[in-house]
Write a protein that binds this DNA or RNA. Structure first.
Lengths: 339, 339
DNA sequence: CCAGATATCGTAAACGTTTGCGTAGATAAA
DNA sequence: TTTATCTACGCAAACGTTTACGATATCTGG
């Protein structure tokens, strides 16, 4: 209903719509005096081009989509921060979609996005997804896609990830060196590559230390926080020999703390805990939490950069553009050796 | 470039574009057999309508914008969660913009949004904004706006807020009852109504307890976390009599903890701390943090509901639709009376 | 059997922008 | 002078949908 459009400007200036349009694009085909007149009136009337008309005509939306499991999570919110930063600098808009780690929702969302609403897509796939035909369909419908963190290997594109195998290895090794011999591994994405990598690192570190792998110590922590905490309490009760926990996702670290608190297990005396986390307050926890921290902001930034470069150059994204950033281990109280 | 559009469907089915369009909208003007044929082919070819063409024609984008200071903050990320939930259920898309509490960015963003890109807007204004003409311009350009938390009183629309005066009063009273007599107030939005309300509650509680208001104990905590921590360390050093801190935003609570830790001040023995926060791990901090927790998820949900109702009914939003939700005080270790 | 209602479909305009093409006038080159 | 080049602008089509309006055929009641 904002009726200040090119036609309106053209009428008031006694020019054609084409000339007004070109003037606003600073085209060489229009004289500088006319440009000035057009710009002046446009500013006065507070003209803003209709994004939909422009997108329709040019087949370019200047919009990217971000599809992630959740936003109330330091990793993803930091990533969004990085994404938004890069997008804003390049004049792109950011649509956000949350899957809540639910396969059905992910399918519905990718279906929407087939309609050409976005020029490109940044995605971290839902842990509930076991099957990826919806992503292949989406990919076939053209938009550039870059996966970050939770990638989909079936799609031939670039991924931005972290050194997950190494991190899993280091985390486990860290617990072993601190004296742990029965280490539980909590994960959420066993069927995703990210989960498998961390798992393999965990297993390799156990093997290197001569500790037998016990798959009953691997807990799948989907579901909500309360049920996860219950799950952990059950584990700790039934397996009192567990003296270390390696949580591969922030939420599970919190649940671990709560389970220990509820059962009166002292950290780090009885149980040591390390986890993937971007919690800013890790050092303020009781006790301070040893974390493996992913460069979430940089991941978002780099993924967005790769995507936007491809969009602007209209070139396909190659797997060779993939990036692996390094996570960092911050040693704190929760894994301190005692006695 | 996804060339499966209405024309393509029409050609393959020997129908007109109009009929195909109507069939997909389940119009009564097309026979059920034709509808079936159309739907079948659409499904087979994975047809998805072009959102931009549709938006252009109908002057409806099925998109709302969310403009907030930051996303790496539990309050806002929970709010987004609520917003996205409501939007998704109604088939709306969500564009997200971050101001980083910067006035210039907010102006630039509102300028974009004048172009009719969104049907409506949910907004929490930047603390750096002292002047609101950009918002009035935006409002004049038509889209429905609902403010949440950090409202702009100059705009005649609905707001979703919390009982900030009462919360400020209760927080301060809580500290006083715990034995504090020199209470610092850290705030970030002194020129926004939300900041003023909390401030007034703080002052009223002081007065009720017969404590003189000392404006040098009111600290403006804009800027980054490190400089805030420095600011607080300086305060605690120069004013050793300070025995209570009321932080009106999550970030400042963290800085307070860090400042105390750095200076060796024991919480709650030397200083008691209470703060607005949606930190899920508040109870796991050392010591557990007493919080005033806003119903962030519900705020997002309610704000989105008001907005979408107005959009769908094409009715203006009235200030009378405003909502005030209640925050809750969770008493924990950081404000425990001692000795 | 005919007037009118009903069911089903097509034609074409419109949304606001971008852009290939054409053109009038001015200038420069021959 | 004529021809070519350049400048500055307008015309009109196109992007993919939606929708007002019309058209045709079938059906109904009298």
């Amino acid at each position: 209903m904002n009726s200040v459009n090119l036609k309106r400007l053209a009428q008031e200036l006694n020019l054609s719509i084409a000339t007004v349009s070109r003037a606003l694009q600073d085209s060489y085909e229009v004289s500088s005096q006319t440009k000035e007149r057009v710009r002046a009136l446009a500013a006065e009337l507070n003209y803003e081009p209709n994004a939909y008309a422009s997108s329709l005509r040019r087949n370019i939306s200047k919009t990217i989509g971000v599809v992630i499991p959740e936003v109330n999570n330091h990793f993803f919110s930091l990533a969004i921060n990085g994404i938004e930063e890069v997008a804003r600098q390049s004049g792109y808009h950011v649509l956000i979609y949350l899957t809540h780690d639910d396969y059905e929702r992910e399918v519905a969302i990718t279906q929407y996005l087939t309609g050409g609403r976005v020029d490109g897509l940044l995605m971290s796939v839902a842990s509930g997804s076991q099957e990826f035909s919806h992503l292949e369909k989406l990919y076939a419908s053209k938009p550039a896609i870059v996966f970050f963190d939770r990638v989909c290997e079936a799609i031939h594109t670039a991924n931005v990830t972290t050194n997950d195998y190494e991190s899993g290895y280091l985390a486990t090794q860290h617990l072993i060196e601190a004296g742990c011999t029965h280490i539980a591994h909590l994960l959420v994405s066993g069927n995703l590559s990210i989960g498998r990598m961390r798992m393999q690192g965990y297993q390799a570190a156990l093997q290197a230390a001569g500790i037998a792998f016990d798959e009953t110590l691997v807990i799948d922590g989907n579901g909500d926080d309360e049920s996860n905490t219950e799950l952990l309490k059950n584990l700790l009760r039934s397996r009192p020999e567990v003296d270390g926990i390696f949580a591969s996702v922030e939420r599970l670290v919190i649940s671990s703390y709560q389970a220990c608190q509820a059962l009166g297990r002292a950290i780090p005396q009885d149980i040591k805990i390390i986890g993937f986390s971007n919690l800013g307050v890790a050092s303020l926890l009781a006790p301070a939490l040893t974390t493996i921290t992913q460069p979430a902001y940089e991941i978002g930034k780099e993924a967005a950069k790769i995507l936007l470069r491809a969009i602007e150059k209209k070139k396909a994204i190659l797997p060779s553009q993939s990036l692996v950033l390094k996570s960092e281990l911050f040693q704190r109280k929760s894994t301190e050796p005692c006695g």
